[in-house]
Amino acid sequence: MARRSPRKKTEESPLLLAARDLLARVEAGDEPGTARALEQLTQLRGDTLFEELGKLTRQLHEALNSFRSDARLMDIAAREMPDAKDRLSYVISMTEDAAHRTLTAVEGRIPVVGDLQRRAADLHGRWTHFRQRRMDLDTFRGLSEELDGFLLHTGREMERTHAELTEVLMAQEFQDLTGQILRRVIALVQEVEAHLVDLVRLSGQRREEPAPAPVDPTAPTGPAVPGRDEAGVVSGQDDVDDLLSSLGF
């Protein structure tokens, strides 16, 4: 006899079959058969109870689960989402600070390096004149003083350049810090996703799929992420140039 097998309406129920069997055996005066049929009927009744109990247990379990998911989601919404927003804002401000620190150092050094380069080229030209013995003593004295000044100045500027390069180096520490913050936010997003999936699964009934919102194909979406947004995306500046020249640019 199949236990707790799904019953179709077209088939006779096991209960009805067992009752008929019992009646037939009583009428036939089959005592051991009657006893067996009675036992079978009792067992069938037990199975139905067992089935109902199983259903209730499952419902209770799912209700508890969904309560846990609800409570956790509420906690996330109340506490961790605002916290994550603050953290992400902090990431923006840290990367911005680092970029400005770097730019300030570089902007300060570019003109100095350009100036040293020009003065070195000028002095080298005059030094070559001297080595070719095409210079009188007075001019040489002037050159000698200038060379002296240039070497001193270069030494001082290189010291400053070294300090500024160290500043650029230190400004890169943002990568470590922002990386850690971003990882925590990613973990939170994954947790929210898992809880939402649970809730949708527990809510059981399939709702009608909402129609997807219309998408503007050229609305700005920010930088393409490798491995994510590759459809219809150019692979670089050469691709852009090819596309534009195909349009008559």
Binding site: P217, P220, T221, G222, P223, G232, V233, V234, Q237, L243
Partner: peptide, 26 residues
């Protein structure tokens, strides 16, 4: 000068009358 790199977007910018288009990073 933009990070927007979809073909459709570049075509739209061209139609809107752009003189040049550079994708970041550049």
């Amino acid at each position: 000068v933009t990070a927007e790199a979809k073909r459709d977007q570049i075509v739209e910018a061209a139609n809107a009358g752009i003189n040049g288009y550079i994708v970041k990073p550049f």
